[in-house]
Amino acid sequence: MTVVEESPRQDIPGVPVRIGQARGGPPRSQVLRRDNWRLQPILVAAGLLVFIGYSTWAALRNGDFYAGHLGRDYLSPYYSPCLTHSCTTAGYVWGGWSWWRISPAWLILVFPGAFRTTCYYYRKSYYRSFWLSPPACAVADAGSTNPGGVRSRYTGETLFPLILQNVHRFTWYFAVIFAGILTWDAIAAFRFPNGIGLGVGTLLFVAQAVLIWAYTLGCHACRHLCGGGLKRLSKAPVRHFFWKHVSTPLNHHHQLFAWCSLISIMVTDLYVWLVASGTIHDPRII
């Protein structure tokens, strides 16, 4: 094996460490784990596939995403901000893109989709569950035990397209904008025809906004921008304050908020669809 490192000093003798030789020990293809290590990647893959499947259906639906005609200012998160004429009553200044022919959800989903795709937690999830690289700790990468096979070489996130994971912080900027839009939707959900009110849908919108913010602000890129990139946090007390509170509990529970916010988006959209299509009536609490 050729080693490519440049040497800072040529007069220092090499330390002999074998690379590329037989290691001994049990064969790498032999899984010695006794626990049910397949369960977690299967559950994660199932969860992500359900979300992808539901989101595809919701985006293709292109209808019943706004319940304004039934006296409820509920707008599906898949269609927020509202870009079409069908929800201009919601007061969105950007509504009324009559020239946009396909579902506006596709245009909207690009941004939160990119944020979640490049998210450090979701990367772990799909690398394990779909790439099987590795499927579980101490279980060999799929294909790595076949010398010369298609998966025998591993380059991680150093080459295109996975090197694009480094844009995560830029997707975070858009995620903050969308979290703000969903917050506005939650506020709008309090508007009823005869004033301020509270419906079951309102609670769902509020919960969704809270979870989205918890997930967005707990992002590792946010944590870095708050102060993680500093050498001396003591010299920047404001950034230290934000860094500390982003780190714990938000970043510490990033995985939890990732799933909860994902589920809340689906539940909110489903509820809006059921209300907007007239399938159910939204009970008013106050």
Binding site: M1, R9, P13, G14, P16, R18, G20, Q21
Partner: peptide
């Protein structure tokens, strides 16, 4: 440990050595 016929080794200076 390393006295094999043709070991590929990683040296401190990053070059192949015997």
């Amino acid at each position: 440990i390393d006295g094999r016929s043709d070991p590929a080794v990683l040296g401190r200076n990053g070059r192949r050595s015997d």
